[in-house]
Amino acid sequence: MHPGAPAPLPPTPTTKRIPADLPFVVRPSLRKRALLLGVITLFVGLVMACPLGLALSADGDAAVLLVIPVIMLFFALLMGLQLWLISSGGPVLAVGPDGLWIKTRPTRGQAIWLPWAAIDRIYLRRWALEKMLCVKPRDPRAASGLGAFTALDSGMQQAFFGTGFTATANFADRSEDEIMRAVVGYAAGRCRVG
């Protein structure tokens, strides 16, 4: 090893699914997410119905209106796939006295274990309708070696949230306040929260 080079990072434990045996586990809320995606699908249908309705009144061809349910079905299938990807991956966060597990990708994929001593800061950040709990490790190399797809997802999350480790706070099965109280309680001052 070159003198002055940083010490090699010990391998960070990862798993395909977050263990559900920690004291505080957060899962995605299928109901909240389905409501949001359903509203988006209806909005897209309505936005399309107005111009197509005007086109129908101009030329009188009722077949134009058949495009609306076809496009809505397409959007509903995309939203269904999104719901399945998000909800079938298991918990998004698990917190305990020694540290936390957090997903490394927003949908299915792996999760990483970070002890409290390895975490620099935990904070909330909003992007559009999504409010995310963001976990910033002390060593930025903690995200290295997690795979190509994770690196791509992590890079996008890094740009939006300042870290690649995020978990939903407002589309979860627990309230944002409950999540933050658990994080503050278990962190016990070993990292910055807020």
Rank of each mutant, 00 (worst) to 15 (best):
F43G: 07
A117V: 07
T14Q: 05
T41I: 09
I112R: 05
M132A: 11
G80K: 08
G147Q: 06
A167E: 08
G45Q: 09
K103T: 10
K32Y: 12
P13Q: 06
P28R: 00
T168N: 07
T168D: 00
A111M: 05
V95S: 04
A143G: 13
D98A: 15
A20V: 10
R31F: 13
V184E: 06
D61C: 09
T14Y: 07
T168V: 08
C191M: 04
L85V: 05
Q82L: 04
L124N: 01
K136V: 13
D61P: 14
A62S: 11
W101S: 10
V92N: 01
Q82G: 07
E130F: 14
M72D: 08
L77E: 03
F165H: 09
K32L: 15
Q110L: 13
P19H: 14
A34M: 09
L83F: 08
G109T: 11
Q82I: 02
A187L: 00
Q157F: 15
Y186C: 04
A151D: 03
L65Y: 00
T14R: 08
I18E: 01
L22Y: 04
L85K: 15
W113L: 00
Q82T: 07
G109W: 11
K103G: 02
P8W: 02
M48K: 06
S154T: 04
Q110K: 12
T163K: 01
S175G: 09
A94H: 13
C191D: 02
Y123F: 10
S154Y: 03
T15N: 13
L129R: 10
V183W: 01
V44P: 15
P115V: 14
V92S: 02
L78T: 03
F161V: 02
G99Q: 10
G155D: 00
A5Q: 14
D59W: 15
R108E: 12
P69N: 04
K32G: 06
Q158F: 15
V25G: 01
A20M: 09
A49C: 07
A187I: 03
L93D: 13
G96S: 05
I18V: 13
L22P: 06
G185F: 03
T107A: 14
G99I: 12
D59H: 14
I179P: 03
P13M: 00
Q110P: 08
V183Q: 00
H2A: 09
Q82Y: 09
V44C: 10
S88I: 02
A117E: 12
L37E: 14
F149C: 05
E176Q: 09
V25L: 01
M72I: 08
P115Q: 08
V183D: 01
G53W: 10
G147M: 00
L93S: 12
L73T: 01
T41P: 15
A172V: 10
L35H: 12
F43P: 00
R190G: 05
L37V: 04
A76L: 13
G147F: 03
R190F: 02
G38T: 09
R141F: 06
F171E: 00
M156I: 02
M156A: 06
V193L: 08
P69D: 05
F43I: 15
M180E: 02
P13F: 05
I86V: 13
K136R: 13
P3F: 01
I68E: 04
G189W: 05
R108Y: 05
M48R: 07
S29L: 12
M180Q: 00
T41C: 14
F24V: 11
S29T: 13
R138H: 08
A118H: 03
P51R: 01
S144I: 13
L85E: 08
T14E: 03
